[in-house]
Structures are given as structure tokens and as C-alpha cells.
Design a protein around this nucleic acid. Sequence first.
RNA 1: GCGAGGGUGGCGGAAUUGGCAGACGCGCUAGACUUAGGAUCUAGUGCCUUGCGGCGUGCGGGUUCGAGUCCCGCCCCUCGUACCA
Length: 838
Amino acid sequence: MAKTITPDLNGPDHFPFSEAERKWQTRWTQANAFQTPTHAGENKFYCLEMFPYPSGKLHMGHLRNYAIGDVMARYYRMKGYNVLHPMGFDAFGLPAENAAIKNKTHPADWTFNNIDEMVTQQQAIGLSYDWSRKVATCHENYYKWGQYLFLKFWEKGLVYRKEGMLNWCPDCQTVLANEQVVNGVCWRCDSTVELKNMPQWFIKITDYADELLADLDKLTEWPHKVLIMQRNWIGRSEGAEIYFTVAEGDLAGTPIPVFTTRPDTIFGATYMVLAPEHALVEKLIASSPEKAICQAFIKKVASMDKADRTDDTTKKEGVFTGAYAINPVNGHKIPIWIANYVLAEYGTGAIMAVPTHDQRDFEFAKEYHLPMILVIKPENAPFSSADEMSAAWTESGLMVNSGPFDGTPNEEGKKKVTEWMAAKGIGKATVNYRLRDWGISRQRYWGMPIPLIHCETCGTVPVPENELPVQLPRDVEITGEGSPLTRHQGFRYVPCPQCGGPAQRETDTIDTFWDSSWYFLRYIDANNTSAPFDTTLANEWMPVDLYIGGVEHAVLHLLYSRFFTKALRDIGLVQCDEPFKKLVTQGMVTKDGAKMSKSKGNVVDPGEILKKFGADAARLFILFTSPPERDLEWSDEGVVGASRFVDRVYRLIHRYAHAFPKAAPDGNPSEAALTLQRSLHQALAAVTRDIEERMNLNTAIARIMELVNEMYRFVEQGEIASADFPIFKEVCDTVMKMLSPFAPHIADELWERTGRNTLIQEEAWPVFNPDLLVAETMKITVQINGKVRGSAEVPLDADEEAIFAKAQEDPMVTRWLEGKTIRRKIYVKNKLFNIVVS
RNA sequence: GCGAGGGUGGCGGAAUUGGCAGACGCGCUAGACUUAGGAUCUAGUGCCUUGCGGCGUGCGGGUUCGAGUCCCGCCCCUCGUACCA
């Protein structure tokens, strides 16, 4: 009678997750299990999830984001990498001020309380962060260095001040953020929001436009979608600036530059259009008979909010100014119009209109009966003059009616015309960007004070480095109207650092995107008190190897961070050109097909799920249900499935745990055990590849589930032969290890139950044995005319003849071959055998 | 309009380079057990057909021994963007 191992069926049927979570989270903390070494060393992996705004409550999107990051961090730790996996809080911003008004709390108290609550929730998920590196952007120790970097940007000439358009509520007497303008009216008092010109601080991100665009090509591990969004956002277009001039009157000869991407059509410019806000408009209409009509039109356009004005259902409208311009290439006198379809912010705010070759100009010209001249004529054109055109021709063709350029292919003409104009001094080649400089001034309290002082005699003076931080005063009155800092006498009125005379502090705070543009560098050296971060350490750890977050940050945050990195490189603080090597944009978590939101009432609180099913089940479900990049539909039933799986694993291993310590080789293992061992190595190979190469965490989990199902089939009889037990133990141990990045609590719990006194995460990620991946025989699918009709079990690497012979033993195959002539045999090695018959 | 992504069972999703479509999970059906639980276990579960078999990856064509996968032409959905001169 062979010796056997009997299961202990008295153990618990369910994984006691509450106790286990408490126990292991405490142990991990006590052991400093996730503390990252200061230096990156040979093998480093910087794994980062976008830090949250501390609203006080985690939502499913957070859970998903952190679960994905945690699996990757834990996996690479087991692979022997030094893993930097930090967490922090993007803690400045408007909600804190709103809460302050609503609840009569101080923004600082509200924010720090929320941070504490969120940390508690994050810890409850079992996330493996190095908490000693936690940052909060509203903390003095952080924003001191944000101010320091601001001064470095200042020295580098990247900061300037100019008038900028802001949303202004005339009733509240305050500047509003774009988000506070709802359908063109103030969110609080419903009065119509005006655009107001106010001096603001800007950062010269446009200096880096070309590099930001060109280096997108280096980001080979970013989602294609994000690269395209950034490319469009930067919006580079090559073209020409052409100087039209005012034809007559007081302003005669005054240049009106236009930007065009179609210099080849310049001979077809039959009128020009200025944006209603164009600086020259007021002067042009001053003595015009059309003055009143123009002023009414300008007022009408100004009162429209931007969304309405740019809506594609809005009709193109315009009025004649009464003034004329000279087309510099042919001296033609053309009328100057103003119209709603020309934008002040793009190009020069003025266009030359070529109705024959621009659809918008075409429609406008038809509407207002403006002249048209055909200047690009395609071969076999269905029209021979402008009158016959039913739409603008925007494709290629030969230039006509274009003086010296007649007959030139228009693509060639673009360059030739530009050179010709440049030689005559009436135009030049130019590159235009949609990207504009970054306006960073915010007339708010809860943000980083901008470290500048305005002195009547010295002008704008930076706060000396040794006086940083410029502290955000606590004793302020927050009413929601105006900036509290302007009312704070002690903060506002200070002596000039240069001349000692009376001066005023800048009372604007900085855009919170400033804070989030360099936090990944601070994590590297989070407790440094003499610099924002140590450059040597930053060079060791950067770039972030894996950055995970929502796609909603595709342009702003991710563009600003890229810009910051490049600027800091030029300042000499880091070496890398790009901050994030691989970017993963996780999909939304939806319920009933819609994004979870309070207004839709479809919010599922992760806290409830954690309480009910435990952290491991919650993590497994959210990772298993959808691949990271796709949207995830929440299902209450689905999480039950994950919880069942956790219990299944727990029961299976727990029942045999007693035998683990004394497991020893004892005779030859059975065929069934060897098969199980082979499945293990196949699963391990697949899981490793799924995590590391494809980041398909859903299929990785599926493979582990499959293996566990097979283990259950193996132990169906309950007893395991002693000879088989070492293999069974190997399978269990590997399952625990493979599971540990996904479900760390149960992994450590079972690791302990099976007699270990180490943490499972200290184990190396198991390596599969290629020799164990394949069996001695293989099953070849047999097709006849491409349809599966049978199979052939043959020795490994059997040749074609052998397989064909074996295939004919299958009665189904013989039946389908009967009376047919074999035309062809196709063998796909180790996979499939197709017999073509007729 | 433009740009990008996607369309596979009742549902979420698998299918690595063209090679057994539907892994894994949910749900459902039947049964076992029972301290009656959101417990556990067993069997089944794409559609049509009594069976043989046939049909099946948005639609229509094509290439191929073989197509969810490649090519051509459509349709639909989601996201981003929006008069960018």
C-alpha cells in the first residue's frame, strides 16, 4: 500500500480576509517591506501611478489605477529589481476653498484630513508603496522647492508677464476658472461672464514646441492615441507670413500680416478678414461709414461665449469694415471684412481669403457675394473658372492667374512663392503653432505663492532663494470673492528685497499643474531639505519606467511634465529628455454603460467592496474583468466570482498545508503528477509573458485560475500519493508566488500556513523550465479541406509521413477521405495537418 | 468635418506570427449535498438540426489549402478635437 497525504478537511472554507489583511498590512509596515533603497543600482524599475487629488474618498478609478501599478511593482520586486513605487497628493486647488466656505473649515485642515483618510484607504488595499517618500504639494516642504524651480525658470528667461484674457464675473468681482463658467454665466450668481484683459504670468512652453513635437517619436511605449493628441495640441503648421497693407486713409501703408499655409494661392486672395478683436479693427472703422454696423457686430460676437461661437452650427457671419487692403503680390485693392470665423488667438488674427481654395472662404464669399479667382487648376477639372465651382478646390493642381507662377505645380509653388515674396520683402516663411504659452496665474488662495515682489523702483524682483519658502499665510478670510491674499496686509506689503523700499508681493498663486509637473522627481529624494532633489539620484532613477493614469491627462499634465523635464535638463538639474518611458492609460470604470458619477447615481464605493469581499478579491476582480487600457464595466456578480476564486485557492492549499514541511521525494511520481507539473510550467511561462511583455493582467489571472482548476482535478480523490507530493508542493508554491502580486494578503497568509516564516515577496519570481513545457507526444489537428475532422496523437517531432499514417487511423478521417483524391497535404509543424481532397 | 480606437455567445472578455473561434469568469439549466448560503461539488451551456451534419467573429466582396486575424468597398458605436487660415 503506497503512502499518501490526506487533506485536513477541518480547516475554514473561506479565506478570513479581514484578519489576514490586518495582520499582513501590519507586518509589512513593521518590516519596512516596501522601502526603496536610496540608490537605483543596476536594475531599477520606477513604477508610478498618477497621484490623486485628496478629495477624501477613493473611487473605483483609483482602485483600478493602483491595483495595476501594484501588480507591476510587486512583480518587478520579485524579479530582483530595485523598485521605486511611491504615492503622494496633488493637494492644492479649488475644492479645498469651496469646502472651506461651505463647512467653515480651513483649506489646510480639510486637505490634510482628507490625505489621512485616503492613505488609510490606500493601505487597506494592500498597496506596496514606500510611504517614507509621500509628498503633498500643499506642504511647505514641497512648495518651497516648487518656488525654487520657479526662480530657476525665471533666471532662464522662461517666465514673463503680459495681458491675458480671463473670465471675469462683474457681480462677484472675481476671476473665474474655465470650469466655473457654466454656459457662459457665473456658476454662483448667474451673471454673464465677461472676458477681461488682466496682467498674468506666462511660462514660455512655446520655446520648446519643436522639441516637444519631435521627441514624441522617442516615446515608442506611449499609446498612439496620446501621441496624436499631443501632436494636435502642439499643432505645428508650416506656411508663410504675408504683409498686406492698408490701402488708403490715415492708416495707408500700415502692414496687416496674415498667416497662411497656402502661399501658393495668394493671387486668388479677393478679400481679407480680421478677427473682431483684432487690434487694428477699431482704428480701421474709426472714420468708416460702416462704423456703427461694425461696432454692433463686434459687440454681438463678444457677448457670445466661446463654445457657441465655435460651434459648427453657428453660421459664418461678417461685416465689411469700409476699408481696403493691398495684396502685395499684385497690387489689387481688396475689401477688409471682420467675421466670426476668424480667431484672434490663432496665427496673426487676420487671414487672406481665397474662396476658390478654402471651403470656409468659399461659403462666406457666396453668402456675401464677394469675388473669386481660380488660381489652382487640376488636370481634367470639372470647372474652368471660379463661376463654375460648387465648392473650394483644396487638392493639388497647376497654378493659373498667378502672374510669373502660371503653370507651376502648386505644391512646388508654395515654396517658390514664399521665396519670391521673401526676396521682395513682402512675406517670409514661418511656422505657426497652436500651442500657446502657459498662463500660470490664479487669483486664488489655496495654491503655491508665486515668489515675486513688485517694487515701484526696481520693478519685479524675485524673492531671494534663502528667503524661501514664501509661506502661504494661514490667517485668511475666504469668501469666494476676490483673492484672499490681496486682502492679507502682512502678506501683501513687504519691503523690496533689492532696495528695501515699499513693495508688494505677487498675490496670485500658481496653477496646480505646476505642482504636478515635477512631483515624480521629488519622490526620488522626497526628504531633501537643501534641494528639490539630488541630481545624481534623479539621473539614476529617471525616467519613470511605467506611468499609469487616466487618459484625461493626455495633453495638459503629460505635456507640462515633458516640458518641465526638458527645461530642468537645460537648467542642469536632470539629464533625461523625457520623463515617462512607458505610459499606460487605463480605461474608465463604468456601471450600466456610463461613467460612475454621483449625478447618475451609479457609483460603487470601493470601501464597501473591500469590506464585503476583501482587498484581494477586489483587486483580482478589477484586474481580471478587462485589460488595463479598456473601459471596465463594474459588475456586482463579477466580484463574487473573484471572491470564490480566492476561497478556492485558500481551501486547496490550506488542506494540505500540514504536509508541506515534511514533503520529500518518495519514489517515482505518477503520470498525472507529471502532467500537472507540465501545466504548471506552461502556466508560469504564460503568466510571466502576460505581465511583462503585454501587461495583460486579465489573461495572467485567467491562466492561474485554469491551473487551479487543474489542481482540483488532480486532488479529486482527496489523497495525494507521497511520491506525487513534492510535485504538488512545487505547484502550490508557484501558484502562491504567481498570485502574490495580484492578491498579496492570501499569498502571504498561505505562505505562512505552509510553514514559512519569510514574506513571500522576498521570494524570487519563479523561472519556468523549458524542458517541462512539452510532452513526449503531441496532438495534431487533422483537417480535410480546411475543416477539422479529427486528430492524431504522435510522438514529438514526428515527420509528415508518420502523422499522415496516424491520421488515417482516425475513423472520421477515413470516412471523409473515402472516394476522394488527395490533391495536397499541408503540415504546419507541431500544430495542424490539412489534407486537400476533391 | 477631421483624427483615433472598437464591433466576437445572454454578459465581461480569450484567441502571441493567417492554423481546433468562444480560454477564464459571470449568468443560466439539471443534479448532488446541506447546518438553507451570495456555501460547496458534479454535468451541461454559440446557433440550427432527431441524427448525420450544417452555419457562425457588424455587412458585402477578394486573396489563401486555411481568414476574427490580410486586402478592397460599406455600416454602426465610443473617445478626442473642432471654423487652426
